[in-house]
């Protein structure tokens, strides 16, 4: 019998306007407790203004063994980068 509480993945938004970033995982019996545990474990030094909790079993990950077929084909397709446009000189920070 498995007595471990379910594992949750925690995402924290550090400031309004930024996106939620994965910060780690923790154990909790339900979603409410996951958010409260995340508050206590991951935001006690003012790291965040918003928390997402997702039960880890609902995260589907790509298989590292498939990296070749998934990612390598993009290697020689530089034309997909928007680096071939002539930008006006006045335009900065692009």
């Amino acid at each position: 019998m498995n007595n471990e509480w379910p594992l949750w993945e925690i995402f924290i938004r550090s400031k309004t306007g930024l996106d939620h970033k994965h910060v780690g995982s923790l154990h909790a019996v339900d979603a409410e407790m996951a958010i409260e545990n995340a508050r206590d474990v991951y935001t006690r030094r003012m790291e965040g203004v918003s928390i997402w909790a997702v039960e880890s079993k609902y995260i589907h990950a790509s298989n590292p063994d498939d990296a070749g077929e998934l990612y390598d084909p993009a290697n020689d397709k530089v034309y997909r980068h928007p680096t071939f446009y002539d930008l006006p000189i006045e335009l900065k920070h692009m």
Partner: peptide
Amino acid sequence: PVLEQDIAITN
């Protein structure tokens, strides 16, 4: 009882 609640109660 678990690490997470240990931190919670210490807070």
